[in-house]
Design a protein around this nucleic acid. Structure first.
Length: 496
RNA sequence: GGCGGCAUAGCCAAGUGGCUAAGGCAGCGGUCUGCAAAACCGUUUGACACCGGUUCGAAUCCGGUUGCCGCCUCCA
């Protein structure tokens, strides 16, 4: 079974056939840098991060391009409020974006072009559109003429007549057709500007992506991605510009991720439920956010809620506990350098988990299905750990099962944290009790237990529990751990 | 108004014609434990919105109904 992806343009799943055998070019619309990124951006970034990692694991050589829009109305508006110039403002939010992505474990793209660095490419593309008569100039503004491009509306499944009919479109006297859009905008005082054949001005919103994607990936490339909302008008217009200018097909596969709601409501600034990635990282561990965001298919809508994230946490803790038990049994994971960076997954993989993982992921990146397999494997490993036979055979099997588990989770950017570190990070509040005292109390309790003084032993355990310490008695003595903050169970105790 | 999507157990969520419909969370019962915790096993009355149709056979395809949502304007 080859890799199949849902193509928004055909509204069907299609087998991925790269233009150049074994190589994939992918362009994803990045962010307009006028504000902090929110968790919706995080979903999009993580989905395409996983797509790229998966493609690489499946042996494709990927060129991943993700742009920054650093000149735009909203940036100009914001810079007027803050008093910064637009370049400084954009630079600040690009830095914030990189911080967020790093925290979430999202890799940098291979190329991260900025609109302001490609003004020449943009002007060149507009010039060709004007020369071909697909664009026209009014004063200092250049418009794209939608009527001159036959398949306008094909990507989003709209027809011009329908759009005009139902429209709440601003009537612009200068436009020949209401749906025509701006390629080049004449400058106003105080705005960023560049010299062009049509006077000083700046690019329109859509043209930069056409220019930059073609610049780095060629006039016709494999995959173009972004959020669902970008299908119209942004991607429709990008497609129209590029195809009209170059005269060849633009993108072979359009991939769009679904939207995120917050507590069942659309995320918007007016509703006050706008959650930035930085906010989310205050409340949740990056691994929790990743697991949560990948727990539903990327095209479906997903509701971000407190209760859903706490459920996610419970599941994640279970997996990391297993990883920790594994470390105690067979030592820390030491993959070779290739396994650690780019795991390799193939259809004919001997391991049941890996071959099944490839089977579900090949079907339009079914991360939810893949996670199901990962949880299956965790249970298998726990069974082995519980079993009485703990000889060398069991150990070597555990080594193999963990290696294959981590190869799969690596593609999802999960289980990458050292277990002990994970538990440290997830229990942010440091205990108001030092470890020496914990050890002392455990010794005291052990003495009581040896004397079968259960009342005293239980009292000590209860005292530690109040301070957030959970004790676990095992065959090799008593272990302690911190109660996970905000887990469903401890939340219930707070409520009752 | 136009276009599109969704409806699977208490909750979240895979599965798009055919073995006993994944997995997670929560609850309950059991194993283990002095009791717990963790883990494991079992379980949550027949879980596929409703009505028709196609088919030997449908959660899955087609038509209709109801309900929810998105886009059509900046938006990941």
């Amino acid at each position: 079974m080859p890799l199949r992806l849902y193509n928004s343009a055909s509204r069907k799943k299609e087998t991925l056939k790269p233009i150049k055998d074994g190589k994939v070019g992918i362009y994803v619309c990045g962010v307009t840098v006028y504000d902090l990124c929110h968790i919706g951006h995080a979903r999009s970034a993580i989905v395409f991060d996983v797509l790229v990692k998966y493609l690489r694991a499946r042996g494709f050589k990927v060129t991943y391009v993700r742009n920054f829009t650093d000149v735009d109305d909203k940036i100009i508006e914001r810079s007027k409020k803050t008093g910064e110039d637009t370049i400084t403002l954009a630079e600040r939010y690009i830095k914030a974006f990189h911080e967020d992505m790093f925290a979430l474990g999202v890799h940098d793209a291979d190329v991260e072009p900025r609109a302001t660095e490609h003004i020449d490419d943009i002007i060149d593309m507009i010039r060709r559109l004007v020369e071909k008569g697909v664009a026209y100039v009014v004063d200092t503004t250049v418009y794209f003429s939608v009527e001159k491009f036959d398949s306008y509306g094909q990507l989003s499944g709209r027809r011009l007549e329908e759009m005009v009919a139902g429209a709440r479109i601003d009537i612009d006297e200068k436009k020949k057709h209401p749906m025509d859009f701006v390629l080049w905008k004449g400058t106003k005082p105080g705005e960023p500007k560049w010299q062009s054949p049509w006077g000083e001005g700046r690019p329109g919103w859509h043209i930069e992506c056409s220019a930059m994607s073609c610049r780095y990936l060629g006039e016709n490339f494999d995959i173009h991605g972004g959020g669902r909302d970008l299908i119209f008008p942004h991607h429709e217009n990008e497609r129209a510009q590029a195809m009209a200018a170059n005269g060849v097909n633009f993108v072979n596969y359009w991939i769009h991720n679904g939207f995120l709601t917050v507590e069942s409501e659309k995320m918007s600034k007016s509703l006050g439920n706008f959650i930035t990635i930085k906010d989310a990282l205050q409340l949740y561990h990056p691994q929790e956010l990743r697991l949560f965001l990948l727990s539903k298919h990327y095209r479906s809508p997903l509701d971000f809620s407190r209760s859903a994230l706490l459920e996610t946490r419970s599941g994640l803790i279970r997996i990391y506990r297993t990883l920790q038990r594994l470390e105690e049994m067979i030592g820390p994971y030491k993959g070779n350098s290739k396994e650690r960076t780019t795991p390799s997954l193939s259809q004919s993989d001997g391991d049941r988990l890996k071959s099944n993982f490839v089977r579900v992921m090949d079907d339009d990146l079914n991360t939810a299905g893949g996670l199901g397999l990962i949880f299956d494997r965790v249970r298998d490993i726990n069974r082995l750990l519980d079993s009485s036979s703990q000889g060398e055979d069991t150990k070597s099997q555990l080594v193999k099962e963990r290696r294959d588990l981590l190869s799969c989770s690596k593609v999802l950017g999960l289980l990458e944290v050292e277990p002990s570190k994970f538990f440290q990070q997830i229990t942010k509040t440091p205990p108001e009790i030092d470890t020496d005292e914990i050890e002392r109390m455990i010794q005291e309790r052990r003495k009581a237990r040896n004397e079968k003084d259960w009342t005293k032993a239980d009292a000590i355990r209860e005292e530690l529990s109040k301070r957030g310490i959970i004790l676990e008695d095992g065959p090799r003595g008593t272990k302690w751990r911190l109660k996970a903050e905000g887990s469903t169970k401890s939340l219930k105790k707070e409520v009752s």
